[in-house]
Amino acid sequence: MAIIGSYLKKHTEALVKDVGIEPACAVTGKSKATLGRYYSDNDEHADRFMPIDAVAQLEEVASYPHVTAALAELRGVGLSFENRPNNARRSGGVNSDVIALSQRFAMLMAEYQQSIEDGRISVNEAKRLLKETTLLQQVLVDMKLNLEDEAS
């Protein structure tokens, strides 16, 4: 349970920081100290987690559903998250998806090469790699949707 708790706390922190601490306080009606306790790794706060209604409120204004995605990953469930209107999807078909996939993968590899240069990946470098991975995932989702369109 300690590993799961730590994992959820890291994603809770990412959610709060995504929204911003002041706006998160306004959205949830919680104080900075209370929000901080929800993602604190101190032993005294080990059993304290953000209530699900507060998670839902924050994820509604966040750029990504951090805690929901973490819960899904813990169960081995994949989520498809699109923070854009359905009609914003590229319509160039599978061929353009393959090109976009190649380009995005090259960007990920370039970011990885730069990050690993000193022999370790820092927190900021990991965040940049995570962002590139998420963008690569989005290209794959677009490709999947285009393939489904062509198959039907």
Results as ranks from 00 to 15, higher is better:
T68Y: 03
G20S: 01
Q138C: 07
G78R: 12
K127F: 03
D97K: 08
A54L: 02
L129R: 04
D149E: 14
V77Q: 11
L140N: 05
S80Q: 13
G29V: 00
D53P: 03
L145H: 11
S6D: 10
Q103C: 09
L8Y: 02
Q113W: 02
L58A: 05
L129M: 13
L130F: 12
R120M: 13
K10W: 02
F81L: 13
V123M: 10
G20A: 05
A56D: 12
V141E: 13
I52M: 14
K127M: 13
S122G: 05
H45L: 05
K32I: 02
T68P: 03
Q137V: 06
N42Y: 07
L101T: 04
S31D: 06
E111L: 08
L147Q: 09
N87A: 14
V67S: 07
D118P: 06
I3E: 13
Q57G: 06
D142E: 13
I4N: 11
N42D: 12
N95S: 12
A126H: 10
D43A: 15
Y38I: 11
Y39S: 09
T34R: 12
M109K: 13
K131S: 11
A70W: 00
L58Y: 04
A69F: 07
A26F: 00
A14D: 06
L35F: 11
R37N: 15
D118S: 14
T133I: 02
S122P: 01
V139T: 09
E117F: 06
G119C: 07
K127I: 10
A26S: 05
Q114C: 04
R37A: 15
R37S: 15
V77C: 08
K10F: 02
L58G: 04
L79N: 01
D97G: 11
N87S: 14
K32Q: 09
A46F: 07
D43P: 09
T133D: 01
S6V: 00
A126I: 00
S6N: 12
E148Y: 05
K127P: 01
N83Y: 02
N146Q: 15
E150V: 10
I116L: 07
Q137T: 09
K127G: 02
S63T: 14
I52Y: 06
G76E: 04
G20R: 01
V55I: 15
M1A: 13
L136Q: 03
A24D: 03
G20I: 02
E150L: 15
Y112E: 04
A33P: 01
N83M: 04
T34A: 15
R104Y: 09
A70C: 06
S31Q: 06
A62L: 05
Y112N: 05
E82H: 09
A33V: 11
V27C: 04
K131H: 11
K131G: 05
L8G: 04
V139E: 02
A54C: 13
V98K: 09
L129Y: 08
L74K: 08
A33R: 12
E22Q: 08
